[in-house]
Design a protein around this nucleic acid. Structure first.
Lengths: 196, 196
DNA sequence: TTTCAAAACTAATAAGTGTTAGTTTTGCCA
DNA sequence: TGGCAAAACTAACACTTATTAGTTTTGAAA
């Protein structure tokens, strides 16, 4: 059949990855088969293996790319010379934007990391825990500086991350509400709940 | 082999269902096989079909039981003669307790409803949307009564539900923090973010 | 002890899984 | 136009899946 035609700025593997993200998101990793993916690419399943290593490798690429982006942003924010609440606000806003702009990728990373084979599964969890720990430290700093109420910092981080993650379920209402409105509302509710 | 021995207050189907909850939670619905479930029951796979209709039916039972419990509680709260913020607090507390006490069931319902076959898939989503809509109406009432800040009520509901749902990820920290502490912290952060 | 339904068993089916081997086609560069 | 690697193809493998059919075992009531 027709070959996988290469776009300007993306290799064939990247094109497969893009389809994989969509497929894993809509069907879930387990129920998404290489034959489904091949069909989306207009090709037979074994042909995919000229470009990729395995199905698992696709999931790894998706999950670790997202993880790296979150960690990278936190590095930048931590280095800022600003108040804690400003930093927390930046983190919240980054999460919200990532959720709204790279919806499918974030969704797959959030839901399907469980299917990562070892040692990637452990590695991913480890990165996640480390990220959370750094946020906890940030909140603790805010409490010590009396910018934040004396709340349990673990609970605060959980609440922040979970609330933002919930934007997953919100895509269906996209029409009735702008991204800016969502961002403003969530920042207000989440940050006001923390600040003294 | 040995028969499935019936406990005092539970039919054999209920016993299978209990094992299914655990299995679906740990392996995910797709990767949980009837052979796994049979092994957990100490029986061969086909024997299960003397007690249940299908694998899908197990998932349906789990998801709709949970949905009914949430709807039932909201019915009760709505009927109360109390302030809106009291009602919202009751809803938040119910969600948190459900999450902490029926962790596995709630987890499965939250994660695996996607695998429900039609028409159950549509029905479940419909019930979910209806539930959210009723919460939105509650928040709107609070804003109209000037108990709450003039926040976007959809965003507020999303934030509440998502934050509570995030308790999923918190079980690993169970040791370091009591249920009461979690409940207090979350109620404070979430409700204070709303109240005028 | 006989009876009989409930519930276990074995065997089998048809479909789907990721992936490899080996072969043919494609399409660019000389 | 001839050569050659990239990338498609077909065929196949070794599993696993949910489920059905048909048969045997179990264990309580008569």
């Amino acid at each position: 059949m027709a070959r996988i035609t290469v776009g300007k700025n993306s290799s064939k593997k990247e094109m497969i990855l893009r389809q994989a993200v969509i497929l894993f998101k809509t069907r879930g990793f387990s129920k998404a088969s290489m034959r489904h993916l091949a069909e989306a690419m207009g090709v037979e399943a074994p042909s995919l293996y000229n470009h990729i290593g395995s199905k698992d490798e696709l999931l790894q690429d998706i999950c670790f790319k997202i993880a790296a982006e979150y960690t990278g942003q936190l590095n930048e924010v931590e280095a800022l010379d600003e108040t804690v609440s400003y930093k927390v606000e930046q983190v919240i806003r980054f999460h919200i934007r990532k959720m709204l702009h790279s919806y499918d990728e974030v969704f797959v990373a959030n839901h399907e990391w469980r299917h990562l084979p070892e040692p990637y599964h452990t590695d991913f969890l480890q990165q996640r825990r480390c990220y959370e720990q750094r946020l906890v430290a940030l909140i603790e700093l805010g409490i010590a500086a009396q910018q934040f109420k004396p709340i349990n910092p673990y609970v605060a981080v959980l609440t922040l991350l979970s609330a933002v993650r919930g934007l997953e379920f919100w895509n269906r209402h996209k029409k009735n509400i702008t991204a800016a409105e969502i961002e403003a509302g969530m920042v207000q509710q989440l940050l006001n709940g923390l600040i003294q």
